[in-house]
Design a protein around this nucleic acid. Structure first.
Lengths: 211, 211
DNA sequence: TCCCTTGTTGATCATACGATCAACAATGCT
DNA sequence: AGCATTGTTGATCGTATGATCAACAAGGGA
């Protein structure tokens, strides 16, 4: 019956241990939120004394901030990767909207929402949040500008419209966090809204089934 | 030099004291967020011992929840009141969108965002959040349905579209909380997006200057 | 005036947090 | 084998939280 006798943790290289800690932090954040990132919580998951976590991090604010950045940046890059496989701006924007509303990333959404609030008392995190929002906005702006060049869209201020679409997506996802029922065809409705904003032909942003 | 000598608080009727406490909670929440609603914090603002606050509340989760509901419901009713003064659905929807994006209610937005996260660990609050979201959705749905009847809009699922607009507004407000710069004409862009969703004539939702 | 009702106090408990650091022990070099 | 390096421990401090409750005192009724 040696459940978790807590022997002494095996000695590891700093790089390896640091990786374990950041990975544990990532898992905890996705499961229970950034608020659950405490010294003792992370230490317990790694199987290590709390002091060791503190040893590898300047302070907890930094770990919260870097964990947020890590999780969110991974998502951005993943979706951006999917985008590049699509032929034109309309298809890309349709995929973007559709993918971000498929509810498969609610854990990440929860972290976004939490970060917006936590950033109020954690300046390091606030900086990360702004940085990651900029990254997302760039993705949207790129697609909008492509559409402008192609003639598929007609937008005078691509940057502003990109911010706008991002905000809408965030809001709808945050909503799904609390109220996931009662709303059907979110993708279709949002597509119609975005069509209105970018001046695309009605129906041109309805997600194509495949290919 | 009697800064705050903390004499004994004057004896008041339960109703009066309870009102003081909820009012203090309201002020604290608007200034520093729901997280700042602690026994000692509220007690200090009222000028009373911490135990008294506890005496008037079953627990802090309840105070947080009722404070959230109070603040948010007041906003809903205020805006709904403005709405009723407008002649038609288009004007009402335009006012709604414009008013909610005027950045004069960022403190309330901050509370919304915080509640979305806090509801994860405060079931009472979570229930309040759902309730207040429903209230907002009803306001939007009413306007959309009016527009459908008038012929100004053309929406098959008014409830879904109402949720959608609400989500967009929330998202854009949350965004303004973190990044208020770089985005111009939010109202105009959103109006265009909403026109697309409700099938209104382009430009029909641009906020009219006055009257 | 006495005294009982009741609003109020504030010390106290249990818990949780971040941070610190002297002591410990595993590892690899000489 | 001996030893210095360094990864690791865990007790400890200061702070903060919600909750509890015996003791206190203000006010009004008798």
């Amino acid at each position: 019956m040696s459940s978790t006798p807590q022997k002494r943790a095996v000695r590891k290289s700093p790089a390896e241990r640091a990786a374990e800690i950041t990975e544990a932090a990532r898992e905890i954040a996705l499961e229970a939120g950034l608020t659950a990132l405490t010294l003792r919580n992370v230490a317990a998951r790694v199987g290590v004394a709390s002091g060791l976590v503190a040893h590898y991090q300047p302070n907890m604010d930094a770990l919260v901030s870097s964990t947020f950045a890590s999780i969110v940046a991974a998502e951005t890059q993943e979706v951006a990767g999917l985008l590049s496989q699509r032929p034109g701006p309309s298809e890309r924007l349709a995929l973007l909207v559709d993918t971000l509303l498929d509810n498969s990333r609610l854990d990440v959404t929860a972290i976004w929402v939490e970060a917006w609030t936590l950033g109020r008392r954690n300046e390091t995190l606030a900086a990360s949040v702004r940085e990651q929002m900029d990254a997302w906005q760039e993705v949207f702006q790129g697609v909008v500008e492509d559409g402008n060049a192609t003639g598929a869209f007609n937008v005078s201020d691509a940057a502003a419209v990109a911010w706008q679409i991002l905000g809408m997506v965030d809001g709808l996802n945050a909503q799904a966090l609390v109220r996931w029922d009662g709303v059907n065809d979110r993708g279709t409705h949002l597509a119609r809204a975005v069509e209105g904003m970018v001046g695309a032909a009605p129906g041109s942003l309805v997600a194509t089934p495949s290919a």
